[in-house]
């Protein structure tokens, strides 16, 4: 287990290094000099040069890369070009919206998918199965930002149960959760459809196993056998999908935040892009990639801890 963990840790580190290089290079080749952008078109050349020196833009690329990565390792993400505030502070503020939103959606999608999959798998080929599979086909085809607009139309504009957008802050947790509810539902629905399909096929595979027949033979009812032996075994592939979904949800939150005017990481990144605030763009993207790679690593670890066969194969 330790050797496996170390091996995975090395590849985690390598992925992060390559990812940071790719992000740095992509942002570096971007047209438009942040310094001249900040000062406007009428700026004197020597003012621009002075600002470039102040921001460290005149250093060679490799030095700036090392400074950027070195800073991130120590928690210093640099200063925003436009706002002159530490990037880490800006990111932290926004993270408290995007992260709870993604988790909220993850909980909702699991709560929705799990009973649906259980129903479909235990009634395979019957009406209930067809209903669930039909609903998931539809769920996959619905773009979440459009679904979000429909939710706003129905629950915010027509019924007035929720506000159409904005975020009141975490001082009042109830109001904050309420503001995140419609976005989380919009995010969760398509993911729930995918999750339900994966869970269903995992359960159906398990139902064909010998130990399930044994469970039935020893006198358990279908439901008992499914609950005690089926669900536990089907949970392993489902865990992996949950890990993957988290990254979809974090990224998907970027677009959903636009619909609901939530000041999360998504709005930060769009704002930074339009203002050529490259250091903010780099850092937010790197943070998201780090989160995804870390979650994948943790899922792999959990997987290997549960199923020893995987340690040898990998």
């Amino acid at each position: 287990m330790l050797a496996y963990a170390l091996r995975r840790l090395v590849s985690l580190g390598l992925s992060l290094v390559v990812a940071s290089l790719v992000i740095f290079l992509v942002v570096e080749v971007a047209p438009g000099d942040p310094a001249s952008f900040m000062l406007g078109i009428n700026a004197q050349p020597d003012t621009v040069a002075a600002l470039r020196a102040e921001l460290g833009l005149d250093l060679p690329k490799w030095q700036r890369y090392l400074a950027w990565v070195g800073g991130m390792v120590t928690g210093d993400f640099g200063m925003s070009y436009t706002y002159r505030t530490p990037v880490s502070e800006m990111v932290m503020d926004r993270l408290w919206i995007s992260l709870p939103l993604a988790l909220y959606a993850l909980v909702l999608s699991t709560a929705l998918a799990f009973p649906a999959a259980l129903l479909a798998a235990s009634r395979r080929g019957e009406a209930g199965d067809f209903a669930v599979m039909g609903a998931t086909q539809l769920g996959i085809a619905v773009p979440n930002f459009w679904f979000a607009m429909l939710l706003v139309l129905l629950f915010a504009i027509n019924l007035g149960w929720f506000s159409a957008g904005g975020f009141p802050g975490w001082e009042d947790p109830g109001a904050a959760l309420k503001a995140l509810t419609l976005p989380a539902v919009a995010l969760a629905l398509p993911q729930a459809a995918i999750l339900a399909r994966v869970m269903r096929s995992a359960l159906i595979d398990i139902l064909a196993e010998d130990f399930m027949r044994t469970a039935r033979a020893k006198g358990l009812t279908r439901a008992q056998a499914l609950w005690r032996h089926g669900v536990r075994n089907a949970l392993i592939p489902v865990l992996t999908i949950l890990g993957l979904q988290f990254s979809f949800l974090l990224a998907g939150a970027i677009i959903i935040e636009q619909v609901f005017f939530l000041p999360g990481l998504g709005r930060l990144i769009f704002q930074a892009i339009s203002q050529r605030d490259l250091i903010v763009v780099e850092s937010v993207v790197m943070l998201l990639v780090f989160a995804v790679i870390l979650v994948t690593f943790l899922t792999d670890m959990a997987y290997a801890a549960v199923d020893p066969r995987l340690r040898r194969r990998a």
Binding site: S11, S15, V18, A251, G252, I254
Partner: peptide
């Protein structure tokens, strides 16, 4: 295969946004 894993590790939407925004 390692290259594949790496591309998979990126949240695709974020990178798509990055590419279209930069280019």
């Amino acid at each position: 295969m390692r290259g594949n894993d790496l591309v998979f590790a990126f949240p695709s939407l974020v990178i798509a946004i990055l590419i279209t925004a930069i280019a």
